[in-house]
Amino acid sequence: MQTLLLLLLVLLLRGVPSAHAQGRYLTKTGLISFFSATPIEDIEARNQQVAAVLDFGTGQLAFSLLIKGFVFKRTLMQEHFNENYLESDKYPKATFTGHFLEFEASQLATAGAHPAQVEGDLTLHGVTRHIRVPATVELRGGQLLAQATFPVASADYNIEIPLLVRNSIAKIISVHVDLACLPVAGAVGIAPGR
């Protein structure tokens, strides 16, 4: 996971002429969760091992997570999710690389959550799709808080639902991203105390 985070950081910092880190934030413990209401039983999972980098100097952002990091209330659900649906041995991670649209970092000087649009490529189950997502960002106590909620259709990522349960599982799930990032203290590190 540390190699993946370093790769994300290098990709975002590549081509940035200044080593000054103002406007860059990262986390290794972001949260991505999803929820799907079904007639049989609601499906919910959380992954708190999300590496993310946000750079307001360039407007870029990226995150990466291991699919097996999703935790379910029921171990059988988790097993089916990894083996039958997301095939996590074959497709071990999901990534997003993109940028903020028409968002000025100077907005963060004003207290409160600020609406933003994020656009980029989401890769899941070996399929990459271009998406545009509404988000909010807020600078509070030195931390950058970023949130987004958006739908993901299993068919868009070639995730097959077995015929036996096809009518019992939602075809679109709600994905929630919740990041609490610290400022980067240099070109390759994070702020003291982290």
Rank of each mutant, 00 (worst) to 15 (best):
E119N: 03
Q143F: 14
A146N: 11
A116C: 06
R74L: 06
K28M: 08
F81H: 06
G69S: 07
A109S: 13
L66V: 09
N84F: 04
Q78C: 00
F96E: 08
F63K: 06
R140Y: 11
D42P: 03
V53K: 14
P39A: 15
L54T: 15
L139M: 15
T128F: 00
T29N: 10
N84K: 09
L65A: 11
S36G: 09
T97Q: 10
H114Y: 02
V118I: 06
L76K: 02
L139H: 15
S33R: 13
A62V: 04
K90V: 08
G59L: 01
E102F: 01
A105S: 14
L31A: 10
I32L: 13
R74Q: 08
I32Y: 12
Q48I: 10
F72I: 03
A45Y: 02
F63T: 01
G69Q: 02
H130C: 03
D42A: 03
T95R: 05
H114N: 05
R74F: 01
A45L: 03
V137C: 10
T38N: 12
A146R: 08
K73W: 04
F100K: 04
Q143A: 13
F35T: 10
G57F: 11
Y91H: 09
L122T: 03
L76T: 02
V127Y: 03
D55R: 13
A105P: 11
A94Y: 01
I32R: 09
P92Q: 14
Y91G: 02
L108A: 04
F100A: 09
P92G: 00
A52E: 14
F34T: 10
L101T: 07
E138L: 13
Y85C: 00
L139Q: 14
D42I: 06
A135C: 15
Y85I: 01
E41M: 02
A113G: 03
S106P: 10
K28D: 15
G112A: 07
I43T: 08
F96K: 07
F103H: 14
A105K: 15
P39H: 04
E41D: 06
L108Q: 12
K68Q: 14
L31W: 11
G120I: 00
Q117E: 15
T110N: 13
Q143M: 12
G120R: 01
A45C: 05
A51W: 11
H114I: 00
L145I: 13
D55S: 12
T110L: 08
L66A: 14
L86A: 13
L76N: 00
L144T: 10
G30H: 08
A109L: 07
V118H: 01
A62G: 10
T110V: 02
G30K: 07
